[in-house]
Design a protein around this nucleic acid. Structure first.
Lengths: 244, 244
DNA sequence: TTTGCGACTTTTGTATACACCGCAGGTTCA
DNA sequence: TGAACCTGCGGTGTATACAAAAGTCGCAAA
């Protein structure tokens, strides 16, 4: 394996392996063999093992009795639960931020992000800079997770968010062609604004409720896909782990 | 290292290392060296590394830039946040259980646990079987975590609970001599009962609120210790990681 | 005195060989 | 005929040697 951009083999293998898993290159639940992977990536078993430990920590692999790992599979209800869970955690971050108060600097920063997001919307209803919005949306949610000043909470949000279908931008990118998705962005942005408003006004319960509801947008989009666009569904990399 | 009861060296090392960390045998934030540990446990570096990966996953160790691990330290506010977080997650489990409904078998089981706990209380106010109650309390909370039928949520609760000071029975055991603790058990048991009642009646919001409030009991106990019993505080193994 | 460079040391990262465990299939013995 | 046992194979677990990188110390020059 070539000395790529990253530091250690283990990290590179982890990245490559993650890519393959999310691409659906492995059967759901199938076992991963160290030797085979090591050969296919031109490294020894040692960094492969380390990479597998890391992916297990991420929740993409599962330790199996008697040693080794299998690719973890998720049911549709797991996806729904993960989204619900992110909503609960972000809601807690928002509530605590409101209850405890937020420093000037941090508040200014996330407001700035909010205003930048505003710039992604064009004059007419359906006109949106999708990619730009996605990036900024991710940044907004990262900043939100830190807003309560709790490292414990921030970590946990980070964890849940790492599941590909539970990220704040899940079921958004590469789908600008779905009318319903584009139109859902404006209300989402309104929720962002209301959320900050509630935090500033120290309205913890309201902030929590808004954050929870806001997290459900991807869930709605998923339902739309399930109902009407199975072809698009298949193109979603986040859903390769789904077992039907 | 002798062939102990468990299967692999890596697991044994992880257990032993966890014990040492929780015993406070390492300075907070201090780095752990693979060779030194390997020698002290009479194994090679390989299982030691694996053990450290596992403990990092648990949140007891922290990866440091440039490789290696340090012992993670927690501030008092981290402890408070972890307890709050457990409350939020158990609250979610309770709410979802109420909203979705719970199967007969599971419901009967957790009710059984509840009744067993009742048996730990004696005739007079302060008379309690402390150890028995602790065990059953842990069981009750485990069953609660599964009650919503969400594997994703159950895992996350399990994770947070593994931090020693965030477990449902934290700041309970070995402290039967503290009057305030013993007296707090009866109200706690009432909350258990109310919680199940809310779930059975499908009152999700009420169930969530009770679970959240219930999780704060350890927090109150911690405050009591902080205020009046610093000597007892020092005897708490869960708090060895605390940096003041 | 301070700063920058370079060799040395320490510690982690990787490859590899070997040990061990479970399992499947065949063989042998009652 | 069936059951117990041997045995080879595919796989992970562990030890160890070596490579590479990061940190450390001292020395020299400005």
């Amino acid at each position: 394996m070539k000395q790529g951009s990253t530091r250690t083999h283990a990290i590179r293998v982890a990245i490559e392996l993650r890519r393959r898993i999310l691409n659906g290159e492995f059967e759901g639940g199938s076992r991963l063999f160290e030797v085979a992977l090591a050969e296919s990536m031109q490294v020894s078993r040692t960094p492969v093992r380390e990479a597998m430990f890391r992916l297990a920590e991420e929740g993409l692999l599962e330790r199996v009795r008697g040693g080794g790992f299998t690719v973890r599979t998720f049911s549709l209800s797991d996806v729904a639960d993960a989204i619900e869970l992110r909503g609960v955690l972000e809601g807690t971050a928002a509530r605590l931020a409101a209850e405890r108060g937020v420093g000037e600097a941090r508040l200014r920063q996330i407001h700035e992000t909010l205003e930048e997001m505003e710039g992604c919307f064009g004059a007419t209803a359906g006109e949106v800079d999708f990619d730009g919005y996605c990036d900024l949306n991710a940044r907004f949610h990262t900043e939100l997770a830190s807003l309560a000043g709790s490292e414990v909470l921030r970590r946990e949000i980070d964890r849940v968010t790492h599941l590909p279908f539970a990220s704040p931008s899940a079921f958004l990118p590469n789908n600008a062609d779905v009318e319903a998705f584009r139109l859902s962005l404006r209300p989402a942005q309104e929720q962002h604004r209301d959320l900050l408003d509630a935090i500033v006004k120290r309205e913890g319960t309201r902030a929590e409720a808004i954050a929870r509801e806001h997290a459900r947008a991807p869930r709605r989009n998923l339902d739309i896909l399930l109902a009407g666009q199975p072809d698009l569904l298949a193109r979603m990399p986040a859903l390769a782990l789904l077992v039907t």
